[in-house]
């Protein structure tokens, strides 16, 4: 079993900020838009060095999405940034018609996703965004797990021609993926090999899955841990190859169970390789105020719960 350690913690949104700054230097067509959240989205360096390619939209997200679609007509690659709630639910129809149906090369980059937004509470803690975005034809949906992976994903989506939803967050979390990684859209990352149970994790839950893997190993259970950073297109091959070995699975995500990663994994398994699946996520409820750690514990999004779910999945084989 591969051992993962970290020396530094950072927020994934800063990975995005580093990525967009890099793109500012390397790709003259990249433009950054925001709806009064430039600081929260870590755009400071981009704004300082590329002021002409920074577009402040004010608190008007629907217009920002439409402006982004229009900017692609003329060859620009717009990165539209705001909180995940305002980047999806608030502007679903604008994304649907002006971006996805029109198949425009717009990158919707969303921070503060999920419960780990923390104290602001449920108005801002969107847990439905992956579901809404994955349902849209032409949309690619990416949910990276740490600073380095978020930066790499930011660079990768600039090279992809078509609409992308990139989801990241606010809390500082361990950096455990390589700084020099090549991010391949739609290609899952095999975190650890095992034969007892598959664990499919995305976003902040990947680190929890790694910790769960270590706890399971202490009991002699070898988990096959896979980071599904791309929710759509889903790496079905990686999922099926893993479950062929293990015969059961756990999904883990900071998202509503309806419409999330687990829901996608369940479809793949039901259609191709029926097997017991336990799902870690939020059960049809809104979040609330609290610290990120308190909320993850209260809503059961922790390594402990992944361990329990793994054992339960194994017992159902």
């Amino acid at each position: 079993m591969k051992k993962y350690e970290y020396t530094e913690k950072k927020d994934t949104r800063s990975g995005f900020g580093a990525g967009i700054y890099e793109l500012g230097k390397t790709n003259p067509n990249v433009v950054a838009l925001t709806a009064d959240l430039a600081g929260s989205l870590k755009l400071e360096n981009f704004i300082k060095d590329f002021p002409d390619r920074y577009i402040q939209c004010g608190i008007a997200e629907a217009n920002m999405i439409g402006v982004s679609a229009g900017l692609t007509i003329g060859g620009k690659i717009p990165f539209a940034t705001t909180f995940a709630n305002f980047a999806t639910g608030r502007v679903y129809d604008q994304i649907r018609q002006s971006v996805c149906y029109s198949n425009k090369n717009v990158k919707i980059c969303a921070s503060h996703a999920g419960l780990t937004l923390g104290e602001d509470g449920a108005t801002h803690q969107i847990l439905e965004d992956l579901g809404m975005m994955k349902m849209l034809p032409n949309m690619t949906v990416i949910n990276p797990c740490d600073f380095n992976q978020t930066k790499a994903a930011t660079l990768a989506i600039a090279e992809h021609d078509g609409p992308v939803y990139l989801r990241f967050g606010r809390p500082v979390v361990p950096i455990f993926t390589p700084a020099d990684q090549k991010f391949v859209i739609g290609k899952a990352w095999h975190v650890n090999e095992g034969t007892a149970v598959s664990i499919f994790a995305t976003g902040h839950l990947v680190w929890e899955a790694i910790k769960a893997g270590e706890m399971l190993a202490e009991e002699g259970i070898e988990a096959d841990i896979i980071n599904i950073h791309t929710i759509k297109p889903l790496d079905e091959e990686a999922i099926l190859e893993s479950v062929k070995k293990t015969g059961c699975a756990v999904s883990a995500e900071e998202h509503m169970l309806n419409g999330g990663l687990g829901d996608s994994v369940a479809q793949v398994l039901a259609r191709n390789l029926p097997a017991p699946l336990e799902m870690i996520g939020v059960h049809d409820t809104f979040g609330e105020s609290g610290t990120p750690d308190q909320l993850m514990i209260k809503y059961g999004l922790t390594a402990d719960k992944i361990v329990e779910a793994a054992k339960k999945a194994m017992s159902r084989k």
């Binding site: 577009i55 402006v67 679609a69 692609t72 007509i73 003329g74 604008q94 018609q97 002006s98």
Partner: peptide, 27 residues
Amino acid sequence: VRIASGSLGQGLSVACGAALAKKLNGD
């Protein structure tokens, strides 16, 4: 045709984006 339309209220925003792109491109 360069954009889908039908759900109302979106065209002005798209036109703003295209106008901005022209300015950025020196067109």
